[in-house]
Amino acid sequence: QEVDTIELTRQVKEKLAKNGICQRIFGEKVLGLSQGSVSDMLSRPKPWSKLTQKGREPFIRMQLWLNG
C-alpha cells in the first residue's frame, strides 16, 4: 500500500523528540543507516511512488517502529 512519507517522517520526528532519542541511535538500531542518511530522509522524504523497493524499506521500518 501507498505510504504518506511526509506524514510518516513527521510522526517519527515527533516520537524521537518526545522520547529523547537521537537520530544517530534511531538510524543505527532501527533503520540500519548512518545518521546522515536518516537526517536526509527525515528532512526531505521522497514520495512513495518515486522510491525503489530498497528505498521504501526504511519507511516500512519506520512504520513498524511507530506501530510497535
Rank of each mutant, 00 (worst) to 15 (best):
I25Q: 11
G68A: 11
D4W: 01
T5F: 05
L42W: 08
L31P: 05
E2N: 05
G27R: 07
Q23N: 08
Q35N: 03
G27I: 11
Q11F: 03
V38R: 06
K15N: 13
K13Q: 10
E57A: 12
I21E: 06
I21W: 13
S34P: 15
A17Q: 09
E7T: 02
Q1E: 15
K54H: 09
R24Y: 10
E2F: 09
P58D: 09
A17C: 08
L8P: 13
V38G: 04
G20V: 02
L51N: 00
F26C: 01
K18A: 11
T5Y: 06
L8V: 14
Q53M: 10
I21K: 02
K50N: 05
E28N: 08
R56C: 01
M41N: 04
V12R: 09
P58M: 14
R56F: 01
K18N: 11
Q11R: 10
T5M: 12
L64T: 13
G55E: 15
Q1R: 11
L64I: 06
T9E: 06
K46V: 09
V3M: 12
W65D: 00
R44C: 13
P58A: 10
Q63S: 06
L64K: 15
L66H: 01
E57V: 06
R10W: 01
K29Y: 02
L8R: 13
F26V: 01
K54L: 07
K15E: 11
Q63A: 04
S49M: 03
Q1W: 05
T5Q: 10
N67F: 02
N19I: 15
M41R: 04
W48Y: 00
K29D: 06
G27K: 08
R10E: 11
L42V: 04
F59H: 00
Q63I: 06
G68I: 01
L51Y: 02
L33W: 09
L8A: 14
S43T: 13
A17K: 14
Q53W: 07
G27Y: 08
Q63W: 12
L66P: 00
N19H: 12
N67K: 14
S37R: 10
L51G: 00
Q35A: 14
P58H: 08
D4G: 03
D40M: 11
I60G: 02
L31H: 03
Q23V: 03
S43E: 13
T52R: 09
R61I: 01
R56V: 02
D40F: 05
T5V: 02
D4E: 10
V3G: 08
M62L: 05
P47K: 12
R24H: 12
E2H: 03
V38A: 06
E14M: 15
S37W: 09
E57Y: 02
I6V: 12
E14L: 08
V30R: 01
S37V: 12
L51I: 09
S34L: 09
S49E: 08
D4S: 04
Q1K: 15
K50E: 14
T9F: 07
W48R: 01
A17H: 09
S43W: 02
L33E: 04
K54S: 11
D40H: 09
R61F: 00
N67E: 15
F26G: 01
S49W: 06
R24A: 07
S34Q: 09
W48K: 00
Q53Y: 04
K54I: 06
C22G: 04
K18R: 08
K54N: 03
V38H: 04
K13S: 03
I6N: 10
A17F: 09
G68Y: 02
G20A: 08
F59I: 01
R24M: 03
R56T: 03
V38F: 14
R44S: 12
L16A: 07
P47F: 13
D4H: 03
E28T: 12
F26S: 01
Q23E: 11
F59E: 02
L33R: 06
K29V: 06
L31G: 05
S39E: 14
T52H: 02
K50V: 11
L8T: 13
W48S: 00
K15C: 09
E28H: 06
T9N: 03
L66S: 00
I6C: 10
K50L: 10
F26M: 02
V3K: 08
L66D: 00
S39G: 14
G36T: 13
G55V: 13
R44A: 13
P47L: 12
G20W: 04
M62A: 08
Q23T: 10
G55Q: 14
M41D: 06
R10L: 05
F59P: 00
P47W: 14
R61M: 04
W65Y: 04
L8S: 13
P58R: 11
L42E: 04
I6M: 14
K46M: 08
V12Y: 07
D4N: 10
I60V: 14
E2Y: 03
Q35E: 15
T52N: 13
Q35W: 15
Q11L: 09
V38K: 07
Q63L: 02
R10G: 10
T52Q: 06
A17R: 13
K29T: 14
T52I: 13
V30P: 15
E2S: 08
Q23I: 01
L16Q: 10
D4R: 03
K50F: 08
P45D: 02
K18P: 03
D40N: 08
T9L: 02
R61E: 02
K15R: 10
G36N: 13
K18I: 10
K54D: 10
T52M: 07
L31E: 02
L51Q: 00
N67H: 09
V3F: 11
R61D: 01
F59M: 01
W48V: 01
A17G: 06
Q63G: 10
G27E: 09
L64H: 08
Q63K: 14
C22S: 14
L31K: 05
R10A: 10
P45A: 05
K50T: 11
E2W: 01
L66M: 05
E2V: 07
P47A: 10
K54R: 11
M62S: 01
N67M: 07
V3Y: 05
N19S: 14
L64G: 11
M62N: 00
T5A: 05
S34I: 04
I60W: 03
E7F: 15
Q1V: 06
G32R: 12
R24D: 11
Q11P: 10
R10T: 12
S43N: 15
G55M: 12
R10C: 06
V12A: 07
N19E: 15
V12F: 04
G20N: 15
Q1P: 04
I25S: 12
S49I: 02
G55C: 07
T9Y: 01
Q23Y: 07
I6W: 03
S49F: 06
I6Y: 09
R61A: 07
G55I: 15
W48L: 02
K50Q: 14
G68D: 13
V30F: 01
Q63N: 03
G36D: 14
Q53L: 11
L8Y: 10
G27M: 06
R61V: 02
L31Q: 03
Q23M: 06
G55D: 15
A17E: 11
N67L: 09
S34H: 08
L16K: 14
R56N: 00
K54P: 02
S37F: 13
C22I: 09
V38E: 04
R44G: 09
K29P: 02
G68N: 10
K18Q: 08
G68H: 02
R44W: 10
R10I: 04
C22T: 14
